[in-house]
């Protein structure tokens, strides 16, 4: 088990500092590369400090859900690779990897940034399925924001595979990708904050996550120059007061804008 000196981290925070000397509202250095996986329709590698995440978008033809016959399908999945941390093991998904995938999914889905109606091929029969698979390569905290950025960058850089219509069936040509992008507008991002000893801070390190009282992830997106909120998720064995939540919403608005600027459209 990874051990962290919670008292040490709390003491540093009490002195108004952080372990890596960052300001409380400051993110670590973020590096985003897109098109890192040629076998995927879209992909991105994101590093936030020593945290590293790769997301890949694959597409296929499938059947729509009965309650939305004219819409494509989005599936987000996350794997915490055993090479990323001594805590991660192969086997069934951990509850935190399920949570991560669902929180990333929620921000993308709820922001309505992808026009799923445009991913319908034949109503009630065939639609595009969009799979976003997230691999956590190295874990030094704040996996949700890294995974969110990687997913959105992978989607924004994706090129649709060619669709071949046969007599009464469809085929996907992965060798010859079209130049067509996914129908996407707006960029949803997740911003995560933790509370340690009453202090709220952005972009937690792994050791800060191990010492935290609670965590709050807030999803925002841009809509015609205005910022809107689209998802929230509290984590950890603690809570927040209403005032603390209000302060986090302010920070999420500001930090979300900073992160959005790092995403390259197309």
């Amino acid at each position: 088990m990874i051990e962290t000196d919670k008292e040490l981290i709390k003491n540093i925070v009490m002195k108004g500092k952080r372990l890596d000397k960052r300001a409380f509202d400051e993110y670590r250095k973020i590096a985003i590369e897109s098109g890192v996986i040629s076998s995927a329709e879209g992909s991105a590698r994101v590093r936030i400090g020593d945290t590293e995440v790769v997301a890949g978008v694959k597409m296929d033809i499938g059947e729509p859900y009965p309650d939305s016959k004219d819409a494509g399908v989005l599936t987000v999945n996350a794997e915490f690779l055993p090479l990323a941390s001594e805590e991660f093991e192969s086997g069934p998904p951990r509850e935190d990897s399920i949570e991560l995938a669902r929180v990333v999914d929620r921000a993308i889905r709820e922001s309505k940034c992808i026009d799923f109606k445009k991913l319908c091929i034949e109503e009630g029969k065939k639609v595009w399925m969009v799979f976003v698979d997230i691999s956590v390569i190295d874990h030094d905290g704040n996996l949700i924001d890294a995974a969110g950025l990687a997913s959105v960058q992978a989607l924004a850089s994706a090129r649709m595979p060619k669709l071949i219509k046969n007599k009464d069936s469809y085929e996907v040509d992965y060798e010859n990708r079209s130049k067509e992008k996914l129908p996407m507008s707006g960029i949803p991002v997740s911003t995560t904050f933790v509370k340690i000893g009453g202090q709220i801070m952005a972009d937690p390190l792994l050791s800060e996550e191990l010492a935290m009282d609670a965590r709050l992830t807030v999803g925002t997106f841009d809509s015609n120059g205005k910022i809107r909120f689209c998802s929230m998720q509290k984590g950890g064995n603690g809570g927040f007061t209403e005032d603390e939540i209000a302060a986090i919403l302010d920070m999420a608005e500001e930090k979300g804008e900073e992160l959005r600027k790092l995403i390259k459209k197309g």
């Binding site: 922001s111 509290k234 007061t241 209403e242």
Partner: peptide
Amino acid sequence: HKKMITLLQMDGIATK
């Protein structure tokens, strides 16, 4: 007693 919110989730679109 602590006036603390211990579960908070949200999906949907809203202003601050």
